[in-house]
Amino acid sequence: MKPAPFKYIKASSVAHALSLKAEYGDDGRFLAGGQSLIPALNFRLARPAVLIDINGLAELEACDCLEGGRLRLGALTRYRTLERNGDLLRACPLFADALPHIAHPQIRNRGTVGGNLSHADPASELPAVTVAMRARMRVKSEAGERELDAADFFVGLLTTDLRPDEMLIDVTLPVQKPRSGGCFLEVARRRGDFALAGCAAVITLDDGSRCTDVRLALCGVGETPVDASGAAAALIGEKGSDKLIDAVATDVQRGIAPAGNVHASPDYQRHLAGVLSARALRKALQRVAHAA
């Protein structure tokens, strides 16, 4: 299990990296944390001609709270950095729930937010979190820069909207609103394995404990992270009763078509999606109550 030959170029700046990507297109791959790419190289499932190493580019390492109540995570933000940043975890508690599910400490020391999102594994946790949080992706090429919603960023199995010459620069997301609660839950065979199903829920209540906003996104149950906020919209204007939440969960199950894998039948995944949606919504509600 040794990689096929490739040319390795260490980018000296984002501009350099982008010019290389413009030159090599799909034959070139950005090397960030490498925690998904290098296994693929070792199995020879990926055989890029050129690896453009973007590690160490300070322009991609931002990890901070912006003015206007938004968080910014540079593409090279490592999971571990996020895990250790108490302010950030408080600003977006979903991360605190989700990060421990991502592989193991050694992987989290290397793996990056940008690499994870660009890899777009539908069973991965962060894509669902970004969808639930209405994150915005800032992508750049030599030709220019654009921003898109997380929900539009993921377009298919291991496929994003990134063009061959583009790079994900950073992700911004809103700080969790007051009177809000969030919860991420997942079922995997072992801790750290890819999710058989996972669910991120965020609920915001008004002073009368009625839902003013509900976000619900799932991982592992489709070709992309699944935005199930539509199903959850039934809660808006309501107090989240068990009955209502169960109805949302049933609706979520109806709206997905999981493919199944060696660990889970499609029906089991659908079942899990319902169970986890209900549990995550309940827990999110409880957390609003606690926060209030």
Binding site: K10, L31, G34, I38, L51, N55, R80, Q106, I107, N109
Partner: peptide
């Protein structure tokens, strides 16, 4: 690597 545990099979020597 600089004090943090990493998988040495998931990193290139050149890195």
């Amino acid at each position: 690597l600089d004090g943090e545990p990493i998988r040495s099979c998931l990193m290139l020597a050149v890195q």
